[in-house]
Amino acid sequence: MNKIVFSISVCLSAAVIFSSCQQDKKLPFYGERHAETVRDASGAEKIDTVYQTIPNWSFLNQDSVVTTNTVTDGKVYVADFFFTSCTTICPTMHRNLMTVYNDFKSNPDVMFISHTIDFKYDKPSALKKYARKLGVDGPKWQFLYGSKDSVYTLAEKNYLVAVGEDSTAKDGYIHQGYLVLIDKDRRIRGAYDGTKEDQVEQLKKDIPLLLAEYKK
């Protein structure tokens, strides 16, 4: 009898110890990283990790207005790559992203950016029509048009999303359906398959976690 009581109490105390060493959950960093020697506020040298960031960009948005990376200053944002005539994964991605958009509609610190990869057809007017039909209005969700080179480089090198032209594909283009979460310092903090409901649910949980990192 004593033995049983003893083993139960050991188990219980172990459980208590393990559960008490949980930290505040922080999202991971994606992409390249390197160590750099930096000076902190007091001037002392220390080594810090520098993560991959999204470079400056400039595209036309759905209102034909030149839009640059400064629109994302001070915001976390979700970026994705799509095209309006896509009949395969894009409708599902944007159906799911719509639910995220609606959840964070009133939060000024959250933004959405969709880059079209159809540089031939998706001029700003086509993007505007698409956005309106999807049910999006206003600057919170930007639909951006740019040259093939600039968008494809940004996708593959910086957001780590594969995109490409493919004449054998049904709609002429292929791309991955990732929704990429970027923090206020332009670092990649998450990538979620926009076609899978459970991953989109995870994105909805992760955005508040990321915002909380910036609250002091």
């Binding site: 009949t87 395969t88 994964i89 894009c90 409708p91 599902t92 944007h94 159906r95 719509m98 698409y130 309106r132 039909k133 999807l134 049910g135 076609t195």
Partner: peptide, 13 residues
Amino acid sequence: NCHGKNGEGLGEL
């Protein structure tokens, strides 16, 4: 993908 799991459609698309 376009018409939805419950046939609800997608916006005006």
